[in-house]
Design a protein around this nucleic acid. Structure first.
Lengths: 115, 115
DNA sequence: CCTTCGTATAGACGCTCGTCGAATTAGGTG
DNA sequence: CACCTAATTCGACGAGCGTCTATACGAAGG
């Protein structure tokens, strides 16, 4: 559970500021790798675009022609890198977005308009 | 060479707008997968943070304890997904950032502060 | 309890990826 | 031309990933 994705001395992390060191790069790459799968991206967008912010696993499996364990695996990956959280209520497990993680990545990729 | 990473009807692409379809997800996932490697992330940050915006391959290889063909492979991957461009001048090949691609990804991950 | 439903885990299998050394292409120079 | 340097391409190998089926777990209901 990474508290902070980036531990930069400055407050505005960006790829354009200065080269990432190996450790920083490894941490960020973990998250991008999780985003580097079409199914996981779609899962994330399903959760992100859901009005209440919550999605039940059973709502996701119906959107894919993949086995339920496969979806479960992808959810686990997204959770491990801090993009999703889960909560069990009765028989169902609900997943929510972690907007802070997405925000950090967005800021990291946010390059000045004209270089 | 993807002209446009996303072909959404709306002008403000974001994960939170509506779920990505399979085709969109596949296109975006290609780029994120390229970012999902620590070495490639560091290469990208080296290019991005370079004052002139240009980096020679020989400048990059020195920053890693990896063989030169391996660096060349990573540069190729970053180029194929539209994150870098290259230009040959004399014996040297120079790589530049494609800020538009990074900008699209940044916008995609830019979620509203409070959901 | 035993069953049923929703979800997670375990193990297996094929394919992809990152890395290497070796060979190849491209440009510059004597 | 021969030679050198810069960079890419090739072929191979081991590790990791996405998917599956089968199994286990957890909660609710007869």
């Amino acid at each position: 559970m990474p508290v902070e994705l980036l531990e930069m001395s400055e407050c505005s992390p960006s790829l354009t500021r200065e080269p990432l060191d190996a450790e920083q790069a490894a941490g960020v790459a973990r998250v991008f790798k999780a985003l580097g799968d079409p199914v996981r991206l779609r899962i994330l967008s399903i959760v992100a675009s859901r009005a209440g912010g919550e999605v039940c696993v059973c709502d996701i499996t119906g959107s894919f022609e993949l086995s339920q364990p496969t979806i479960s695996h992808h959810l686990k990956v997204l959770k491990e890198v801090g993009l999703l959280t889960s909560e069990r209520r009765a028989s169902w497990v609900y997943y929510r977005l972690v907007p802070e993680t997405l925000g950090e990545l967005s800021a990291l990729l946010d390059v000045p308009a004209t270089v």
